[in-house]
Amino acid sequence: MTTTFSFAQSENVDSYLTSLKKSGQDSKLSHLKHLLYDLQSAVYSNSGGTKVYGDHPTALFADINSLNSINSTVSLKNDIEIVTIKIKKSSDLSQSINLNSFSGFEKLKYIFITTEIETTPSLINNLIKNDDSKYVILYKISIGG
């Protein structure tokens, strides 16, 4: 009898962008760069509440502690394509990122995890629960800035 374990696999955002460029996926690369770096309508959700800026938001910014209620607290989710999850302190690494929390986000393609603390890709991968490979999971570790 063989047992197979499935682990979430996140990828460094810079490496992923490079791989899109090398594989000639210019429109996908351009669109992802737009989602990551350009100003756009967005929803901001944290433990203090939810705020919407603009019409038809395509981005959601959340802290890790607000994820359990994200499906019910964010009402404008129809056009959201990217979720940026911020990990700000070491205690955040004891939380989990349950991808089922995003089940109501029909256009969601990317989960982008950013950290402001020292961590490893392995620890980030261990945070992710219920990964069904529906999303591209990216991360960036930015210590001190």
Score class of each variant (00 low, 15 high):
38 D>Y: 12
53 Y>N: 05
115 T>I: 03
90 S>T: 12
86 K>A: 13
138 L>Q: 05
55 D>H: 12
48 G>T: 09
136 V>R: 12
66 S>E: 11
63 D>H: 09
55 D>N: 12
129 K>H: 08
110 Y>W: 04
83 V>L: 02
119 T>K: 11
70 I>C: 05
43 V>E: 01
40 Q>A: 15
116 E>R: 14
89 K>P: 00
76 L>A: 13
101 S>F: 06
80 I>C: 05
118 E>W: 12
119 T>R: 10
39 L>M: 06
58 T>M: 12
108 L>Y: 05
101 S>N: 15
47 S>A: 11
107 K>S: 04
64 I>Q: 10
99 L>A: 08
83 V>C: 07
122 S>T: 11
81 E>F: 03
33 K>S: 03
51 K>A: 13
102 F>P: 00
36 L>M: 02
122 S>F: 12
109 K>H: 08
40 Q>R: 15
65 N>C: 01
63 D>P: 02
87 I>W: 11
52 V>S: 11
123 L>K: 15
74 V>L: 12
88 K>E: 12
84 T>H: 11
109 K>F: 07
109 K>D: 01
124 I>P: 00
114 T>V: 14
115 T>E: 03
88 K>D: 11
125 N>A: 12
33 K>N: 10
127 L>H: 06
100 N>I: 02
45 S>D: 10
72 S>P: 00
114 T>C: 07
41 S>V: 01
105 F>W: 05
115 T>R: 12
97 I>W: 04
58 T>C: 06
51 K>G: 00
125 N>I: 06
58 T>A: 13
59 A>R: 15
128 I>S: 02
107 K>I: 00
77 K>Q: 08
127 L>K: 08
55 D>E: 09
142 S>F: 02
117 I>V: 11
47 S>Q: 08
76 L>D: 05
134 K>T: 10
113 I>A: 08
104 G>R: 08
105 F>K: 08
103 S>D: 05
39 L>I: 10
60 L>F: 09
119 T>G: 03
34 H>F: 13
127 L>S: 04
112 F>L: 05
53 Y>F: 15
141 I>D: 01
48 G>I: 03
102 F>Q: 04
90 S>L: 07
137 I>E: 01
115 T>F: 09
77 K>A: 03
87 I>D: 06
125 N>D: 15
103 S>C: 01
121 P>I: 04
96 S>R: 11
58 T>S: 12
42 A>Y: 10
35 L>D: 01
92 D>Q: 05
73 T>G: 00
99 L>N: 04
48 G>L: 15
85 I>S: 08
60 L>H: 04
81 E>L: 02
96 S>C: 10
103 S>L: 06
48 G>H: 14
85 I>W: 12
122 S>M: 09
85 I>R: 14
77 K>N: 08
121 P>L: 06
100 N>M: 04
73 T>W: 00
102 F>R: 08
136 V>W: 01
91 S>C: 03
104 G>N: 12
41 S>G: 09
100 N>W: 03
107 K>V: 00
135 Y>S: 03
54 G>K: 09
38 D>C: 09
87 I>T: 06
43 V>P: 01
77 K>C: 02
60 L>K: 10
89 K>S: 07
101 S>E: 04
66 S>K: 14
109 K>N: 07
136 V>Y: 09
69 S>E: 13
129 K>I: 01
120 T>G: 02
37 Y>G: 00
118 E>A: 14
45 S>H: 14
82 I>T: 01
72 S>Y: 13
